[in-house]
C-alpha cells in the first residue's frame, strides 16, 4: 500500500493556515481597537484643552474678541430656541408622513415615488439644505437670518431620519392589535390614535431625539444661511437674529490666536454635554418603555 497523502506536508500547511488565521485575527482586533482609541483620544484631548475654561462666566458671557471674556450664553440659548422650532415641526411632519406611508398608502407607483424620494433626500449633503434654506426661507419668504429660517431648514434636514424611525416604530406594532381594535368597532383613525400610536411612541421618541441631536450639532446649513457669530443679546422672538453652539465653535476654532483653541474646546464640551444628555434620555426611553411582542 502506498500512501497518497503525506501527513507531514498536511500538518505543515495546516499550521501555516492556522497561523495566518491568528495573525489576521490580531489585525482585525487592532483595527477595532483603533476605532475605540480614536474616540478615547478625541474625548480626552478635548476635555484636557477645554476644561480649564468651563466656569460660570463661560455660561454667562456673550461672544467676545478676547478669549478670557468669551462665553456661550447667546449660542447655548440660541441653539435651544432653534430646537424649539425644529422639534415640533420635524416630529409632527415626520410622524404624519410615517403614518401615511405605513397605514394608508397603497402599493402603487406614486407612493413608491414618495418612498424613493425620502431615501434620496436622506443622502443629500447638509450644505445643500443650507442653500435651499438661504434661497427659500431667508430670501423668498423674507424670514432673514432668524431662528425660524434656521429652524425650518434644520427640520427639513432631519425629516427623512425621523420618518424612517417612525415608520419602523409603527411597523413594529403587531397586526393583531389593529385587528382587535377594528373588531371592537373602532374606525381606522381611532385605531391609529388610540392603539397604534401609543404603542409606537417610545420608538418614535427615541428616533426623534437622536435625529434632533444631529440637528443641534449640524453646522454647515447655518454657515450657508449666514447666521452671525458675535451676538450680544438674547433672542427675543422667532424672527430675531441668533447664533448657535456649533457656529460659535466654528468661529473660535478658525481664529488664529492659540487661546481661542481652548475656548473652542470648552464650547465643544458644552455641545457634547447637551448631546450626551439627549442621548441618555433616548436610551432611557428605549429601555423603559420598549415592548417586545
Amino acid at each position: 500500500m502506498t500512501k497518497y497523502i503525506d501527513d507531514t506536508v498536511v500538518m505543515k500547511r495546516m499550521q501555516s493556515r492556522l497561523r495566518k488565521n491568528k495573525i489576521w485575527k490580531m489585525i482585525f482586533f487592532l483595527a477595532t481597537s483603533f476605532a475605540l482609541l480614536t474616540l478615547v483620544v478625541l474625548i480626552v484631548r478635548i476635555i484636557c484643552q477645554g476644561a480649564g475654561y468651563i466656569n460660570w462666566d463661560f455660561f454667562n458671557n456673550f461672544g467676545s474678541r478676547f478669549p478670557e471674556k468669551a462665553g456661550v450664553k447667546a449660542a447655548l440659548i440660541g441653539s435651544i430656541c432653534m430646537m424649539l422650532v425644529v422639534a415640533p415641526t420635524s416630529i409632527i411632519l415626520g410622524v404624519a408622513t410615517a403614518i401615511y406611508l405605513e397605514e394608508y398608502a397603497k402599493n402603487n407607483r406614486f407612493n413608491d415615488f414618495i418612498r424613493t424620494n425620502i431615501s434620496n433626500l436622506a443622502g443629500v449633503p447638509s450644505i445643500v439644505f443650507g442653500l435651499l434654506g438661504l434661497t427659500i426661507f431667508v430670501r423668498m419668504f423674507g424670514l432673514g437670518k432668524s431662528i425660524l429660517a434656521a429652524g425650518l431648514t434644520m427640520s427639513l434636514l432631519i425629516l427623512p431620519v425621523i420618518i424612517v424611525a417612525a415608520q419602523e416604530a409603527i411597523r413594529a406594532v403587531p397586526k393583531e392589535q389593529r385587528e382587535a381594535s377594528y373588531g371592537m368597532g373602532a374606525t381606522k383613525w381611532q385605531t391609529i390614535t388610540r392603539v397604534v400610536l401609543p404603542s409606537a411612541i417610545p420608538g418614535i421618541l427615541t428616533g426623534s431625539i437622536l435625529a434632533l441631536s444631529r440637528a443641534i450639532g449640524e453646522t454647515a446649513p447655518l454657515v450657508v444661511i449666514g447666521i452671525p457669530v458675535i451676538i450680544h443679546f438674547l433672542p427675543t422672538g422667532l424672527l430675531s437674529e441668533f447664533t448657535a453652539l456649533p457656529m460659535q465653535i466654528y468661529d473660535w476654532a478658525k481664529r488664529p490666536q492659540e487661546a481661542f483653541q481652548y475656548v473652542a474646546a470648552a464650547g465643544i464640551i458644552v455641545l457634547m454635554i447637551v448631546l450626551v444628555l439627549m442621548n441618555s434620555i433616548a436610551v432611557l426611553i428605549r429601555n423603559k418603555f420598549q415592548k417586545r411582542y
Binding site: 478635548i46 454647515a220 456649533p246 455641545l271 448631546l275
Partner: peptide
C-alpha cells in the same frame, strides 16, 4: 453621533 465640527477641530 459626534458632530462634524468636532471632527474638524480634532
Amino acid at each position: 453621533g459626534v458632530p462634524t465640527i468636532v471632527y474638524g477641530f480634532f
